[in-house]
Nucleic acid binder design. Structure first.
Length: 552
RNA sequence: GCGCCCAUGGCUCAGCUGGAUAGAGCGACGGUUUGCGGUACCGUAGGUCGCAGGUUCGAGUCCUGCUGGGCGCACCA
């Protein structure tokens, strides 16, 4: 919508130039905004102020000149205000025409080609398969999944990926923990080590092994047992993670195994390549990457003294692999506690000769779980913590997703379980869903009163004359911009704030104006507006992965 | 010590690439309904945007320093 306005302003500038009123040695970037107060107009621009210097004229003089040439069929008014803002009011037809388009687009309303089919890979969650997902992962999952939906809607060719760290020491610890629990369950007295995985789920897995294999491992040496226990536990946990995510409506296009990078020698090749480029040296029996040459604070070990490769080492190969698959932009979501990893990874990409701007790491800050204002303790040490599955089963997928998405992901999040469950307006998910259900209920009433609703029928929208109605229309028409900006800024919370604002306008309108009445053409016009609103709420919630119930 | 994130009414947070009188929700107080879902609506009170400088026509927004809080600083992942 704003691009249409920009064009109108641009045309006006050209006319002013032709008339010799403006020099315009270079055309400025035209910024169109919504005025603070809706009474001032539908749009405003500050071009006159930005041009003041190069034109050597006061903003007001320029504004007057531009306003004179702004006359256009769709424009009903152009006013100069404050230090030189030009406030523009558009004709009602301008909005109604676009409202018709929105309804015609239906599910596609909000879609754009802003991404121009750029291949983008978004990697998120990627939790180690050593235990169930907890609340922190849940936030990453919700944000990553919503971003994926938003980027797709904005015309990016998007792939969502989960990187499975199925190699390394933690896998051995996992295998060993399970093996120890297995023996314990079979009656042996075990001193369970502090640094092993102590969660209850390990006992469950050990129990399953007993159900399946009985005591066949009991007299075998550790070396012979661990590979089986490691794989069994990993597969079992991974399956659980997949189940949790799918129940949370989070989908991945690809599950990428770290182990596969060793199997096809990618890791080796990546290291050799870096060595060939002179980015690698040996010291104290280990192999180091000269990451400090690329803005990291120190060099990093990629092959340990023991000959084992570090996690960082396979990550190099992994990111090279991503680029080789043709992705032009790589987005990684990580927990805030991993932020030390950012410069290191950027250094690698730079060393490999890629533009570091293709790589974007999004840090998702911590979640504090509250219960009626009181902090719920999350102790990972004991292995007992609030899992994502627990939270989802307590508050439901819709509320959980909304809460994870309602705040900017770079601020700490207080997630109040009691609030999330409430069916009152303090709970924003409910407030929005209620509006949708209420709209659907109005359509049901209309039908009972003999007003059949047909989306494709021709409706006389000139019956919409209330200022409140146009305020809602303007808000609806802003939706595509919200999506596009969310995609560009990689910020999901804009959508949740937008929906809240949109819906509160509706509730106010509803309480003052009757939709279904004896006046049939007015009823139809208002139903048309509500249909557009319903579409927008659904599409917005769809981007967040939240359902829009027709009844509650 | 070094680095990243945060700091906006009592609480939880918005504030788009710097723009007009800093906005919501909750809480507090006071109102609203013979009709479409009152699970709603309307109003009132409440802010030196952590502090101090700087950049500019203009700063909550950008820069520097400081304070406070969170998180990191492994041949762990």
């Amino acid at each position: 919508m704003k691009t249409a306005i920009k064009k109108i302003i641009h045309d006006a500038l050209e006319k002013a130039q032709q008339a010799g009123e403006l020099e315009l040695s270079s055309f400025p970037d035209i910024v169109v905004e919504n005025p603070k107060d809706e009474k001032m107009g539908d749009f405003s621009t500050n071009v006159a102020m930005t041009l003041a210097r190069s034109e050597r004229k006061s903003p007001k003089v320029i504004a007057e000149s531009v306003a004179r040439y702004l006359k256009n069929g769709e424009l009903s008014q152009a006013e100069i205000a404050g230090p030189g803002f030009i406030n523009i009011k558009m004709s009602q037809e301008f909005f109604l025409e676009r409202l018709r388009n929105a309804v015609a687009q239906g599910e596609d309303f909000g879609q754009s080609d802003a991404g121009q089919g750029t291949k983008v890979l978004i990697e998120f969650v990627s939790a180690n398969p050593t235990g169930p997902l907890h609340v922190g992962h849940g936030r990453g999952a919700a944000v990553g999944d919503a971003l994926a939906r938003i980027l797709k809607k904005s015309g990016y060719d998007l792939s969502a990926e989960y990187y499975i760290n199925d190699v390394g020491n933690q896998m051995n610890f996992l295998g060993r923990s399970t093996w120890l629990r297995y023996r314990e369950l079979l009656g042996e007295r075990i001193e369970f080590p502090e640094d092993h995985y102590r969660g209850e789920y390990i006992k469950d897995i050990a129990g399953q092994i007993i159900d399946l294999k009985g005591d066949e491992f009991i007299n075998k040496p550790e070396d012979e047992c661990i590979p089986f226990f490691r794989k069994f536990a990993k597969d079992n946990i991974l399956e659980g993670i997949k189940k949790d995510l799918s129940e949370f409506r989070v989908t991945f296009d690809n599950w990428f195994s770290e182990e596969s990078l060793y199997e096809d020698k990618s890791v080796e090749k990546a290291v050799e390549w870096l060595r060939g480029e002179g980015h690698i040296y040996e010291k104290d029996g280990a192999v180091w990457l000269k990451s400090s040459a690329f803005d990291d604070d120190k060099d990093r070990v990629i092959v340990k003294q023991t000959g084992e490769r570090t996690y960082f080492c396979s990550d190099i190969a992994y990111h090279q692999n991503k680029i080789n698959r043709g992705f032009k932009k790589l987005i990684n979501l990580m927990g805030a506690d991993h932020h030390g990893y950012v410069p290191r990874m950027a250094a690698v990409l730079e060393a490999m000769g890629y533009d570091k701007n293709i790589f974007k790491i999004l840090l998702v800050q911590f979640v504090s779980l509250l219960r009626a204002g009181e902090k719920v303790s999350m102790s990972t040490r004991s292995g007992e913590f609030e899992t994502l599955a627990d939270v989802v089963s307590e508050v439901g997928v819709d509320a959980a997703r909304y809460f994870f998405l309602m705040r900017s992901s770079d601020t700490h999040l207080d997630f109040d379980l009691e609030l999330a469950k409430k069916e009152t307006p303090d709970n924003p998910v409910f407030y929005i869903q209620y509006a949708h259900a209420r709209i659907c209920s109005i359509f049901r009433t209309a039908e009972e009163n003999g007003v059949a609703w047909d989306r494709s029928a021709d409706v006389d929208l000139s019956r919409l004359i209330e200022e409140e109605e146009f305020a809602i229309i303007r808000a609806i028409l802003a939706f595509p911009e919200i999506v596009e900006k969310s995609a560009k800024a990689l910020e999901v919370h804009r959508t949740s704030h937008y929906l809240l604002d949109l819906v509160s306008r509706f509730h106010g309108y509803y309480s003052r104006h009757r939709v279904v009445s004896d006046d049939k053409s007015l009823t139809l016009a208002r139903l048309f507006l509500l249909d557009a609103l319903r579409i927008t709420i659904r599409n917005g919630f769809e981007l967040m992965g939240i359902s829009s119930p027709e009844k509650m």
